[in-house]
Every structure is written in C-alpha cells, then in structure tokens.
Design a protein around this nucleic acid. Structure first.
Lengths: 210, 210
DNA sequence: TTGACAATAGACTGACCGGTCTATAGAGTG
DNA sequence: CACTCTATAGACCGGTCAGTCTATTGTCAA
C-alpha cells in the first residue's frame, strides 16, 4: 500500500485511533471510555480498529502508551538541551504540564498514570509498556543530571523523585481544580535540584559533593 | 435500631461495602469493578447497596474515599508523633506503603490516585472528597514540619512534594512490579527533608530559620 | 400482638460493553 | 482485466453494566 489512499483527515486512521486513545486515557482512563465513543472521536468504524490492532482495546492502549512515552522523552530531551541549567528545564516541563491541565479545565492529566492504576498484573503488555516508559523517562533525566555533575546514585534517586513528583502533583491538582498543589510541589522539587546541582563554575568536573 | 441484628460478619454491611470499594479502588479503579463483583466481595445483595447509598456506586466511592482519608491521616499522625524525627516517620510511612504494594503482588496501590485519574469535572462529589482529603494530608504534614522548625512557605511546598512523591512512586513501582522506583524516590525525598530540617538541638523553639 | 420502619434479598431491565463477522471498496500487480 | 491483499464499513452477538422494583425478614415501640 504505502500510498495513503483518500485520507482527507489530518492523519492516518491508525494515528487517529492512537490519538483518540491517548486523549481518552488522559481524561477518563482506560475503563472509562467505551469503544463506541473512542471510534466516534477517531472518525473510524469498528472494523478498522481490529484491523490495525487485532488485540483490540488493550493493544491500542499499548500503542497509545508508546506514543506518549516517545513524545515525553523527546519533549523532555529538547527542553533539557535547550536550557543550560537542568533545573530550568525541569521548571519549564512542570509549568507546561500544569498549563495543559489548567487550560483544559482540569481534564487533561497524564495518560500514563491513569492506565497504570487501572491495570492489574494480568495486563502484562500494558504494564510492560508503562514500566519501560517510566524507566526511559528516568533514564533521560538521570543522564542529564549525571552529566551536570551529580553523582550517579544521587542522580538516580533524584530522577525517580522528579517523575514521582510530576505524576503525583498532577493527581492532586486535577481533583482540586487548582494548580496550587502542583506549583508547590514544583517549588520544593526545584529547590532540591538546585541545591543538589554543583555550584556553577566554568568547569564541568564532578565535585563528588556531599 | 442501634442493635446490629444477627451480624456474624466482622463488620456491619455498610462497613463491608465500604471496605470492598476501598479494595476495589486500590486494585482496579472505579470503572474497573462491577457492582456484582463488589457485592460478592462484600457478601451483600444488590438491594442493600442502594439502601445504604441511594446515590449508588458513586456515593459508595465517596464514602470509601472518606474512609481512606481518615485512615491515612490518623495513621500518618500516629507515625509522626511516635517518631521524634519527622523524617523517620516519613521513612516509615513510605516503607509501609511500599511493603503493602510488594506484599500484595503489586496489586494494592493507593485508592485515591486511581479514582482521581478516572474522575471528570462532572464527578463533583468525588473530586471534592479527594481534594479535601489530599488537602488534609498535606495539612497534617505541614503542621508537623512547621512545628519541627521549617518556615511556613517552605513547609507547605515540602508537604505538597511529599504527597506527590508518595503517589507518583506508587504508580511507578506498581507497573514495574518492582519497588525500586519507590525506594529511590523515598531516598531522594528523605535527603531533602533531612536537609531542610533545622539542626537537631535540645530546644524545641521554632528558630524561624532561613 | 400489631404497626412502622430499617435492612436484607434477589429478580429484572434496558443500555452499553468489547469483540466477531461478513461485505465492500480501493490500489497495486500479473 | 483478474487476482490479491489491505483498509473501510457497520450489522450483529452474548455478556455485563448500573440501577430499579417488589418482596421478605427482623426489630423496635405502642
């Protein structure tokens, strides 16, 4: 095939399905959306879902998770290399998520956390995708923090905390209909990051500080 | 009535319903459980649910949220007064949740976060219960941290970060089937708390530090 | 004992669930 | 043109969903 036929729509059917699932996960969670609703949003009939994703709803969810993960890691990566200071990049990252949440009337949080908490150990593929995804995000952070002069163990702990704080802050802000808990979280987190980062000198050596 | 009739079961029907909902939220989320399954777990017929909770599943969920919140705040409160050092209390708190998660085969996380992410702005009562609950937990922490000598604004930020970290760490550990992300998170968090706490002296006055 | 009311019990309902199935259309290849 | 294979399309299915309804039981108060 390769030629994408008569697609007037902005994206291929497959991509529209994924986008609709991402959006659904963000707003209502995996079990919160029905297939009918999903297909309506994607402007696609039912058969096409099982054509592209023989595993059905779950397989689509995995694809959605993968898409979100790569979006996050590349976005975060860009932010990290655009800002000289990792702390500023983090600040921008938190602010971005915060604005997205508030700007959507506190509907759009993180698609990953929602499905993570609905999944059971039986949902192997979903959990694996999520676990790999979170690990990838942590790895992105770790690498940056480490090369900014933070010792490896400390950088790993800090990376885990950053991801935890991001997810947890979104949860709190979402239900409160207020950004406060998230901005408070970000403030404390950024304090820590800035404290942990070695003093800005022109040399890049790892000072093995405290 | 007051006399609780012929209840051989450990708790009243109402309490069993709430307990079953709490457990369900912990493991599969609000939309992940069916009423049939829930009632089976609570050993109760359907009519009794709508007798005690005319608002149905949602009203039961609100009651479950309230129950969890008071359990958390009292448990955390006890921990905080049992340990002289707030950081140690926090450490115990994180460890407790971590063990509960791991000990249940990574099924039992936090019931609050799950329903928080499935809820929409239309679920007013649920979101309100959650928002108040998270605020109460933060308030418990704030009060302790402040009276341990941390300046108010800083204590508020730190409290928000602690709750965020707790929730976010549970999410990551859950899907990974490993406690690592959570213990890493806890390590970084405790570092920060210990750094922020004023130097241990024998006097209890609030130094209005920094 | 009787009347009132809370609590228990489960049959029943209509809507919607995820998933299967068959039919058709379109595009590339011989 | 004919064949093939992907993609689109939606009717259809059994099962389950949350919620309603009526009946029964249990326990007080009069």
């Amino acid at each position: 095939m390769a030629t994408n036929s008569v697609n007037i729509n902005p994206a291929s059917t497959r991509e529209r399905l994924i986008a609709a699932m991402v959006d659904a996960l963000r707003t209502k969670g995996f079990h919160g959306v029905g297939l009918t609703e999903l297909l309506l949003a994607a402007q696609a009939p039912k058969g096409v879902l099982y054509h592209h994703f023989p595993g059905g709803k779950s397989e689509l969810a995995v694809a959605a998770i993968d898409a979100v993960i790569s979006e996050i890691t590349t976005g975060l990566g860009k932010l990290l290399q655009r800002h000289a200071d990792p702390a500023s990049a983090l600040e921008a990252w938190m602010a971005f998520a915060q604005n997205k949440l508030a700007g959507s009337g506190f509907e759009q949080g993180c698609p990953l956390a929602a499905i993570a908490l609905e999944s059971t150990p039986e949902d192997g593929a979903i959990r694996a995708a999520l676990a790999n995804g979170f690990a990838a995000i942590r790895a992105t952070l770790l690498q940056t923090l480490h090369s900014a002069g933070i010792e490896a163990d400390r950088a790993r702990n800090l990376s885990a905390l950053i991801v935890s704080a991001y997810e947890g802050a979104l949860v709190q802000a979402r239900v409160a209909g207020s950004v406060e808990a998230m901005s408070d979280t970000a403030a404390a987190l950024l304090d820590l990051v800035r404290m942990t980062l070695p003093k800005k000198t022109s040399l890049t050596v790892n000072p093995e500080s405290l």
